[in-house]
Amino acid sequence: MKRLLPLTLSVLLASCNNGSGEIEGLKSFTHEGGDHQEGRVAYTQRPPAGGAHNPSWQNCGVYDQPIYDEYAVHSLEHGAVWITYQRNLPAEQIAALKQLVDGRASTLLSPHDSQGAPVVITAWNKQLEVQEAADTRLKQFLQKYEQGVEAPERGASCSGAYNGTA
């Protein structure tokens, strides 16, 4: 005998799935990997979601100061996810972001001075802007794109390189 889900559960599941599996508000870009260059890079997205980058990557981890875009982009190329926030984000929201990345090997967390939204989560060629750290799409993004298939060098190291701040 076939069991049917209650109507409320069916509607809830459909609304969570959005029909396509895509995360609402997700932006996609097209950047090729492997473009290493020294010095500063002028990026179109703030924070950047790919493109030319420093030959060294940023060590994954939590930073209380901004990090250089050029090193972070190299980490994105390796499959990392970078969560950035405006410096005026309330302390309890920053604590929630730290908890979100706790125990994950391929994430960066740092303030970013030139982004428009309070919180931005970025992977290679993917980005999502949200208004607060409690937004459930952050966890969805992290689960989907950390070591995601679009990262040109996914699985490459996220440690043993640069750990300075801007």
Rank of each mutant, 00 (worst) to 15 (best):
K2M: 10
P6F: 11
S10T: 07
V11G: 03
V11T: 08
L13W: 02
A14S: 15
S15Y: 09
N17Q: 12
N18E: 06
G19M: 05
S20R: 00
S20V: 03
S20W: 07
G21P: 06
G25A: 07
L26I: 11
S28T: 15
G33R: 10
G34P: 08
D35S: 14
D35R: 14
H36W: 14
G39V: 06
R40H: 11
Y43K: 01
T44P: 12
Q45V: 02
P47R: 01
P47I: 03
P47S: 05
A49M: 12
G50L: 09
G50D: 08
A52G: 13
A52P: 03
H53Y: 07
H53A: 06
N54P: 06
S56W: 07
W57K: 05
G61S: 05
G61V: 08
V62T: 12
I67V: 09
D69P: 06
Y71W: 11
H74R: 15
S75W: 01
L76H: 01
G79M: 03
G79H: 06
G79P: 00
W82E: 13
T84P: 10
Y85R: 15
Y85D: 02
Q86H: 14
Q86W: 11
L89F: 03
L89Q: 04
P90Q: 00
A91G: 09
E92Y: 09
E92M: 11
Q93T: 07
I94Y: 02
A96M: 10
K98G: 06
Q99D: 13
Q99C: 06
V101C: 13
G103F: 03
R104Q: 12
R104I: 12
A105L: 12
T107A: 09
L108E: 09
P111D: 00
P111M: 01
Q115R: 04
Q115I: 04
A117Q: 08
P118M: 05
I121W: 01
I121M: 00
T122E: 15
W124N: 09
V130A: 00
V130M: 00
A133S: 09
A133H: 05
T136Y: 08
R137D: 07
L138V: 14
L138Q: 02
K139S: 14
K139M: 14
Q140M: 12
L142Q: 03
Q143T: 10
K144F: 11
K144N: 09
Q147R: 13
G148L: 08
A156P: 07
A156W: 14
G160E: 04
G160V: 06
A161Y: 07
Y162Q: 13
T165L: 07
T165G: 12
A166H: 13
